[in-house]
């Protein structure tokens, strides 16, 4: 009797997850359709699909609207997925790629390429690739340093990672500030774009390599889900359960750096998505990393497409940087989270 009851509960919670997933997927599709249709120019999506739209509408759709929406979805998915994974890796519910300095490191890498690239006369075709690589490298350095610190001072100091993050963010802003000081007017405009985050410059040419990197890295992280679950017990415990801890940690650090770095390379710093979304995903889909990473990616994509829609339609014909929208939503959530996770 008791066993049957437990099985029913299990089945119920599984179907619960199934329905949540279907709901999240439906909301995502809705957000994408809305994102494709609305904007400075209204694009009735049905006309595009049936081919009855005029050529201007079609051009706006394929060259401006579609790359922007898909880029926003990919960046949202990969930042949220990376957030979920970093929280798991550091066993820290407050970890967020922006807060702990990973996005800052990536931005420093990207900014260095913008300024130094002009000095070194790097051809623009090559810049499409040098920038993501530099951003990923910056993110990788920061995640690696953070991990060393977390190991040195013990996993349980939730605040330590955040404090180290503050220090790293300060260092990156020194670097970015120096590059700003050294840059010309045109470069300065580009730099400001990094600081606030925007999808306004989305083009297939520049976006596609990064979108591919982000999707592949996020999927690869899903493949490490079971090891990440076991890491929650502690590193020694995970080892005792057959996880090659050192190698998994390296892979996860590299993959999440790719997620964040590629995202920052195309869209600048967009904060709090990696913090807020995984918590919502845990609430609806549970804490196991496979549904968590996939669910965070889907929710993150939804949130980012919606935030970008808001950013480009709220004050037409002008645009708000999308990073401001996500921070406005995320910062209060962060405050609430602090009251929840810090022991009284």
């Amino acid at each position: 009797m008791q066993a049957t009851l437990a099985r029913l509960t299990q089945a119920f919670s599984n179907s619960n997850i199934k329905w949540s997933s279907i709901f999240v997927a439906a909301v995502f599709l809705f957000a994408v359709i809305l994102g494709l249709s609305l904007g400075a120019v209204q694009l009735p999506i049905w006309n595009i699909v049936t081919g009855s739209a005029d050529s201007l509408e079609t051009t706006i759709f394929t060259q401006i609207r579609a790359p922007r929406v898909f880029l926003a979805a990919a960046v949202g998915a990969s930042l949220a997925g990376a957030g979920a994974v970093l929280q798991g890796l550091f066993r820290n519910p407050l970890a967020d790629p922006g807060l702990i300095g990973v996005s800052g490191g990536a931005a420093l890498g990207a900014v260095a390429v913008i300024v130094l690239g002009a000095w070194l006369n790097v051809p623009p075709e090559l810049a499409i690739y040098t920038m993501p690589v530099a951003a990923v490298f910056g993110a990788l350095v920061v995640t690696g340093v953070l991990y060393l610190f977390a190991n040195r001072f013990g996993q349980f100091r939730i605040v330590t990672v955040l404090l180290v993050g503050i220090a790293i963010n300060a260092l990156s802003s020194v670097g970015i500030g120096l590059f700003q000081y050294a840059s010309d007017d045109a470069q300065l405009r580009t730099l400001i774009f990094w600081m606030m985050g925007s999808f306004g410059r989305a083009q297939w040419m520049t976006a596609l390599p990064c979108i591919a990197m982000m999707i592949l890295a996020t999927l690869a992280l899903v493949g490490r889900a079971e090891a990440l679950d076991k890491l929650q017990l502690g590193e020694a415990e995970a080892f005792h359960l057959g996880v090659d801890v050192i190698s998994i940690k390296r892979q996860v650090v590299l993959l999440s750096a790719i997620c964040v770095g590629a995202g920052v390379a195309v869209a600048g710093i967009i904060g709090f998505v990696g913090l807020v979304v995984p918590h919502i995903a845990r609430f609806t889909l549970g804490v196991a990393h496979r549904p968590l990473i996939l669910g965070s990616a889907l929710l993150g994509a939804t949130l980012m497409v919606s935030a970008d829609l808001l950013a480009r339609t709220a004050v037409l014909p002008a645009e708000i940087p999308v990073g401001l929208v996500t921070s406005a939503l995320g910062a209060p959530f962060f405050l609430w989270l602090i009251t929840k996770v810090t022991p009284r």
Binding site: R91, P93, D229, L233, E237, H240, L241, G242, V245, R282
Partner: peptide, 28 residues
């Protein structure tokens, strides 16, 4: 032995308790 091969031969319980996310007892 690899970590996997060792895990197939022995189970270990330490004194530490590190979980911070809400896994159910059955998940653990």
């Amino acid at each position: 032995f690899t970590a996997k091969q060792l895990a197939a031969r022995r189970a270990v319980m330490l004194q530490s308790d590190n979980l911070v996310f809400e896994f159910s007892a059955s998940d653990v």
